[in-house]
Design a protein around this nucleic acid. Structure first.
Lengths: 213, 213
DNA sequence: TAGATTGTTAATCGATTAACAATC
DNA sequence: TAGATTGTTAATCGATTAACAATC
């Protein structure tokens, strides 16, 4: 299976997974590509096409077994096992992220939280004790953490990114509005609400667009 | 100019804008499509192509005038004037959003904040006083607010969405992990950090991908 | 067996890119 | 004038979709 998988496919898999998990929670056992297409706003033919990149998971005349498909997609994405995650910044945003239910649901576990506010260090969010920034490198190496989430004030973003990267982090999720640079081999995700709002705005001002994004 | 603009173009404009604003702040006056392409990780030909959908803003042999291009893109997107925004939920996440610098920078103004915790009602975030949820409809109509941001606990997400929509909101930005339904004519944006993490995970587990997303 | 729905191929569609003439 | 870089066309590429045979 050395075939190259198109980006678009990988981007849609989490959307399928979300709906499938919700269906599973509702006790539904089987779903057709037609129904899944409705729920995800994706063309049914495309869903079938997407899945065939990884194998054939359905039963003709019946549809897809939901628990099985969930499992398969999770294995494809790598969310079938726990991923440890370091959170830098324990302000409002950091606290919100640490408490976010969806993370846990998909196998992400906040293992370490850092902040350089002495008032916060030593206190806890959930069951994680906030550590001083100085311990970042040591702690990351100790737990072999590969994913870092940045929720610090903008001016600290680049420095924190650099330190995360040099401590072995492979994926950086940047929640600040600053554009940070990452070294080769590190994947950067910018989560900028404004970016999306601007995008929507275009359609809003045109009185167009019912696009679900 | 009744030409249909491809989605992809509209999605890239905010990225151009972000870089252009940053360049402008750095005092740079002119940029070529080649340089802008480098900074945004977009093919220069594509940038030029994208812009021609709206006119021709550059000077051959010279490049693009940054202040002018910023202005043009802002006008295209509709971020050249202030947009009022209602925030529902004043917990950690809500507070983080209210204090987010990038919003203001792009002309978004948090006009009203709602929460149903009596301890929070009456207190302020920045210079906005938190109102009880009961005042949502009245307050939205009064200020003619078209954009709503949901930062409430998951179980309240759908109800709040419904109320926002029926009070005239046209764009809903959903920060909860719940899938909410919106009526026809309302644009929904889901901001789900897990979605992105899962996407990245795929490349991480394959030791591939340096994709900047 | 009849009905349903997948997996897969082939056709369509649109987006990206390369190339270059226009022009600053 | 020479060099640079746009605007635009045409070629490439890839992704989406329709259609249908396979099969549950």
């Amino acid at each position: 299976m050395t075939e190259r998988i198109p980006e678009g496919v990988i981007e849609r898999l989490p959307a399928y997974l979300n709906i499938l998990i919700q269906l599973r929670e509702d006790g539904v056992n089987t779903v057709s590509s037609a129904r899944l297409g409705e729920l995800t706003c994706v063309n049914p033919a495309q869903i079938r096409r997407d899945l065939t990149h990884f194998g054939s998971f359905g039963k003709r005349g019946v549809g897809y077994d939901i628990p099985l498909l969930v499992e398969r997609i999770q294995r494809i994405l790598g969310s079938d096992h726990v991923h440890q995650l370091a959170l830098v910044g324990a302000g409002n945003l950091g606290s919100a992220i640490a408490g976010y239910h969806g993370l846990r649901q998909h196998g992400f576990h906040v293992t370490a939280i850092f902040d350089n506010d002495p008032k916060k260090v030593g206190t806890s969010i959930g069951d994680i004790t906030i550590q001083p920034l100085g311990q970042l490198e040591q702690s990351l190496r100790e737990h072999d953490i590969r994913i870092g989430v940045i929720a610090v004030p903008p001016e600290a973003a680049q420095e924190v990114t650099d330190r995360l990267a040099s401590a072995g982090v492979r994926v950086v999720l940047n929640y600040t509005p600053v554009i940070v640079r990452v070294p080769e081999g590190v994947t950067l995700h910018n989560t900028d609400p404004v970016h999306e709002l601007l995008h929507t705005l275009y359609y809003l001002s045109r009185r167009e667009g019912v696009a679900r994004v």
